[in-house]
């Protein structure tokens, strides 16, 4: 066993009404370690560097392979999935690692925030195919492989919140819906049956805080862990909404 240590600096808060505080922990390094396994070490021995016994840090995680979207946090100042944050990469020379909760969502505790607004937004944009029923109705519409190749990357969005966290337009002074939901509009409007309800989805992002609020900072694509072409999606939806504004609202 090596005696190499990793230092974690964690921004903690017991509940939304309590004070924020930084706590530091040293944990033993091991190969292929990531932020989650480091946090697990803290759980097994929740003692800060100055020897104080504290409650273990809490965080959200589930799949640990970057498909569930649960473990988003701010690692060294930048939002990302913490499961793929490999210690050797983010702290190559043993630099302290800072962990903080996302700032654009209401805090629950420590590194846990409440992202329910993102799920509400999915409802708002009607991110679904309006199915006649789950009974047998034969195959779905045929689709060209290119269609699938366009849709598939879009449909990998895990609702992790990285794009909202990094977006300067998403904040408590604006009600911008954010890139994730807009991307869903594009995804469903691409689908042969989904497109039958395209207008409803477009209308949903043509209101206050809709697609027009995008500020083109394009941080979303930079931080998206699934490399979803979010800017392209915004551009697509912008085009569709423009058309709908001209031919659906104004010239109708």
């Amino acid at each position: 066993m090596s005696d190499k240590k990793i230092r974690l600096k964690i921004l903690r808060q017991d509940s939304p009404t309590k004070e924020k505080r930084w706590e530091e922990f040293d944990v033993e390094w091991h190969p292929r370690m990531n932020v989650i396994s480091a946090l697990m070490e803290v759980q097994r021995n929740p003692v800060t560097v100055d020897g104080t016994k504290v409650a273990p840090v809490v965080w959200e995680s589930s799949c640990l392979e970057e498909v569930c979207g649960a473990c988003t946090m701010i690692v060294n100042g930048r939002v990302r999935q913490s499961c793929t944050a490999l210690i050797d990469q983010i702290s190559p020379n043993g630099e302290p690692i800072t962990l903080a909760p996302m700032t654009k969502f209401p805090l629950v505790r420590d590194l846990i925030v409440d992202r329910s607004r993102m799920f509400h937004d999915l409802t708002k944009v009607k991110a679904w195919i309006t199915l006649d029923g789950s009974h047998e109705l034969g195959p779905g519409p045929r689709q060209a492989p290119e269609n699938q190749e366009e849709a598939y990357p879009l449909s990998r969005c895990m609702t992790c919140g990285c794009c909202l966290e990094a977006c300067p337009q998403v904040n408590d002074h604006s009600n911008f819906i954010g890139p994730a939901a807009i991307n869903q509009v594009r995804l469903f409007n691409l689908h042969p049956s989904g497109s039958m309800h395209a207008t409803e989805r477009l209308e949903a992002v043509m209101g206050e805080g809709g697609v027009a609020d995008c500020g083109k900072a394009q941080n979303c694509v930079e931080v998206c862990p699934k490399e979803i072409p979010l800017v392209d999606s915004i551009a697509q939806v912008s085009r569709a909404t423009t058309k709908h504004m001209l031919f659906g609202w104004l010239l109708k």
Binding site: P168, A217, Q218, N219, E222, V223
Partner: peptide, 21 residues
């Protein structure tokens, strides 16, 4: 009005486009 609604973060997210923003 729009400018006051923005919360720029170019230091945390150093990207060309973010600076342009």
């Amino acid at each position: 009005k729009l400018a006051t609604e923005a919360r720029p973060n170019p230091i945390a997210y150093v990207h060309g486009r973010n600076w342009l923003y």
